[in-house]
Write a protein that binds this DNA or RNA. Structure first.
Lengths: 345, 345
DNA sequence: ATGCAAATTTATAACGATATAACTCCCAAT
DNA sequence: ATTGGGAGTTATATCGTTATAAATTTGCAT
């Protein structure tokens, strides 16, 4: 049949195809004798379709294994059924991405949403992938981490009224959804614990200062050392993002000096391992000459010897909370300013 | 204008909208005075469109920031521009997913392909997500890992002629694309090295036996111990997937016995840490009482003390190779049987 | 001028879903 | 008998793209 064939238009359209290709609304329409429109609304459980009709349509749909074509839905409705996790693939925090993804997939399970990883390459501006997603409607919602006090991504997304949840807080006046871990509490407790164990001088290794949680960690640390009136320092020239050998060298240099700290607080597993290796290389004993509290995000430190005190941050839970909150935001059942701060047990 | 309005059909169709919404082919068509079809083909660099026209269309497209609508393309062509990475989010191999994703995003950079994480939940059959992707054309290509000798996913995908690359080999007669690490070489070299260091009895901790690479590891190990005629054992009751405390307890029990091994080969970082903690808890010294070769997939062991011999497997490289190979498969420029075995340096 | 092929461009339909408005019943009220 | 209204169903157009076939223009020889 030539596409210009003048006859055979209107009515049922093209020849009835039976059950050859993959099932569409048309297939169900042909099997039930109902119009495609009716089938569509029946599956959407529209109240104006008779209950009996709805049930019959469901049955047939289930029988032939109908699943809506996402591309068609997306084209027609403008919704993508995609949630984008913007990730810097070079963030070498051990298993950070995987843990988050684990929580996210759990939260998204049973929903029509798919998780798409949108890489953010460090040689392009942070805002680029976000802008791209919004402008080209690549997703219905965005998740990202490493939030900054005046995060341009947050500002952009708020401005465009685009659903998102970020891991970490801003200091913006406008409220917005986020999930965060209580990093103030982490460093505060860590410091108190080290002091109680007898440390005389504490050192904390912070994240790069541009992240909001770096301020929180600093603040918790400072509050504790001031309350207790103890000597302290903040590791300079290195951050939690530094390569581990840089951290090791820095700590080793410091430990050789007379006024070296005897208690370290590490915001991540890599830096904690680097502190331990530095001490080991200098024949200092962890737990006697140098004490350590590390933030733990995996099972790794269960096997580290000598045992080290850790405080656990559940990234998988964070991912799950972020997913759930985003879903509610997109459904309109969560306020803009809704958020979630996770405290360690 | 009512949808049934009889006039105003044909020709340019609906009222010329100017530049309000997001740019489409129609926008370019209106700006250039060319038909939508012509614009489409011009952007596709079809040879039958005059060179001058092609250039003009490109210019206008660039100027207004045109990007094709993926949903529409997908609906029309049937191609999704999506690559699916099927991942068990509970695989707790430290950073396995992240490293792979890092390599993949690098390989996919600059292509129109997006990476979608399709979770495989351990409470559903392994084949389910794969079947779903193929049946509902959720992606143009599939990647997965932990391949088995007679992997049902591989058989299914071959049968349906669906592009894929897996991490790990099968033992199927039909050739198919894969990327693998030389695990035979790993255990062989590890065993030889331990023997050269003076070990009298070796033990290897293997992956669950259903995986092909478990056989490779066993084979490399067996070959070496037989060539050297040395005592050996294969850890029973635990695998690389066991929880780390189970591994620790198992090793500790064994190390307390008279005929304990003095050389361990660990296929992963978690198990290596568990062996070390078991030894530490028994006051055995790593490198003297017990030696160890571990497979390293992250920077972690650079900081582990005492230093442990490691052999490096680059998972990010594997991800990149898988991505590249899959792209070539989908483009038709790689044979079905093309594959890539990565050897350690 | 005329014809004819080659080079370009265009009209049309289609992918599969859904929003909108219109239609068809059937029954009650005027 | 005519009208009105509610319930249920359907026709039509549309999202933005591309494959197919048709139409137009151009170039060149007759």
């Amino acid at each position: 049949m030539s596409p210009n064939d003048p006859g055979e238009r209107g009515g049922r359209g093209r020849a009835i195809a039976g059950g050859s290709g993959k099932p569409t609304l048309r297939t169900i329409s042909e099997l039930t004798g109902l119009a495609v429109t009716t089938v569509s609304r029946a599956l959407a459980d529209a109240p104006q379709i008779a209950l009996e009709t709805r049930q019959r349509v469901r049955e047939v749909a289930a029988e032939i294994g109908y699943l809506p074509d996402r591309a068609a839905q997306r084209l027609r409705t403008g919704r993508t059924n995609v949630i984008s996790l913007v990730l810097d693939p070079h963030e070498e925090i051990l298993g950070y991405g995987t843990s988050m993804i684990r929580g996210l997939t759990a939260a998204l399970r049973g929903t029509p949403y798919h998780l798409v990883i949108t890489p953010h390459f460090s040689d392009t501006p942070q805002i680029d992938p976000v802008r791209h997603i919004v402008r080209n409607r690549m997703a219905d919602g965005i998740l990202f981490s490493r939030t900054e006090p005046s995060d341009e991504r947050v500002r952009f997304l708020l401005e465009h009224d685009f659903p998102f949840v970020c891991h970490g807080r801003t200091e913006l006046a406008t409220p917005h959804p986020y999930v965060d871990y209580d990093n103030y509490q982490f460093t505060y407790k860590a410091a108190v614990s080290l002091i109680a164990a007898g440390c005389r001088k504490l050192c904390v290794i912070l994240p790069p200062p541009r992240f909001t949680f770096a301020q929180h960690m600093r603040h918790g640390f400072m509050t504790a050392v001031r309350e207790e009136g103890i000597a302290f320092e903040i590791a300079e020239g290195i951050t939690l993002d530094s390569k581990s050998d840089a951290i090791r060298e820095h700590v080793a240099t410091r430990l050789r000096q007379a006024d070296a700290p005897d208690g370290y607080i590490c915001g991540g597993e890599v830096s904690a391992m680097a502190v331990m290796s530095a001490a080991f290389d200098l024949d200092l004993q962890i737990g006697r000459d140098v004490r350590l509290v590390a933030k733990q995000t995996s099972g790794l430190f269960d096997e580290v010897r000598p045992r080290v005190e850790t405080i656990y941050e559940d990234l998988s839970q964070a991912g799950q909370e972020m997913g759930t909150l985003l879903l509610r935001r997109m459904a309109g059942t969560a306020a803009v300013g809704e958020m979630q701060v996770i405290h360690s047990a």
